Computed example of a mutant assay.
Amino acid sequence: MLAHCGGRPEEALRHLAGTVASAPQEPEPYAVLAELWQDRRSELAGVVHDANSLSTVLARSYICFLEGDMDGAALAIGAVTGARPQTAWATAPWFGDERFLGAVSAGALADAAMRTMDHGHELDTDAMRERFRPWFHAIDVVTARSPLPEALARMAILLRACGLIDGSFALCDRADSVERIMLTEVVRAGTWRRLGDPEQAAAAFERALALDPANWSLYLDLADLRAEQGDFAAAVRLVDQGLRHEPAETTLRAAGAAYRARLTGSPADLSELIELAPQLPDDSYLRLLIDHACAGPGLPAELVAAARRSRQAGRG
Rank of each mutant, 00 (worst) to 15 (best):
L2Y: 03
R8Q: 13
A12V: 04
V20N: 03
A21V: 09
V32I: 14
L33M: 15
A34G: 15
A34L: 12
L36C: 07
W37N: 11
R41P: 11
V48P: 05
H49A: 04
A51G: 09
S53G: 15
L54W: 04
T56K: 04
T56S: 07
E67D: 15
D69Q: 13
G72A: 09
A76I: 00
A76K: 00
G78K: 00
A79Y: 01
A79E: 11
A79W: 10
V80M: 11
R84M: 14
Q86N: 03
A88P: 13
F95K: 01
G96S: 12
R99L: 11
R99H: 10
L101V: 06
A106T: 08
G107E: 12
L109A: 12
D111W: 05
G120Y: 04
D124R: 09
D124G: 04
M128W: 08
F132W: 10
A138T: 03
I139N: 02
D140M: 04
V141H: 06
V141M: 06
V141Y: 03
V141W: 02
L148P: 00
A151N: 09
L152N: 08
M155N: 05
L159K: 11
L159V: 09
R160D: 14
C162N: 05
C162F: 04
A170R: 15
L171N: 06
L171T: 01
C172R: 01
D173G: 05
V178Y: 05
V178A: 09
L183S: 02
V186K: 11
W192V: 01
R194P: 00
P198G: 12
E199P: 02
N215I: 00
S217N: 06
L218A: 10
L220M: 15
L222V: 03
L222H: 08
A223G: 07
A223D: 02
R226G: 01
R226M: 07
A227T: 00
G230V: 05
V236N: 05
L238T: 02
H245F: 14
P247L: 07
L252A: 15
A254Y: 00
A257P: 07
R262A: 14
E272A: 12
I274A: 09
L276R: 02
P278H: 08
Q279I: 02
D282K: 08
Y285K: 07
L286F: 01
L288I: 05
L289S: 11
D291W: 09
A295R: 15
P300I: 03
V304P: 07
A305V: 02
A307E: 07
R308E: 13
R308M: 14
S310F: 03
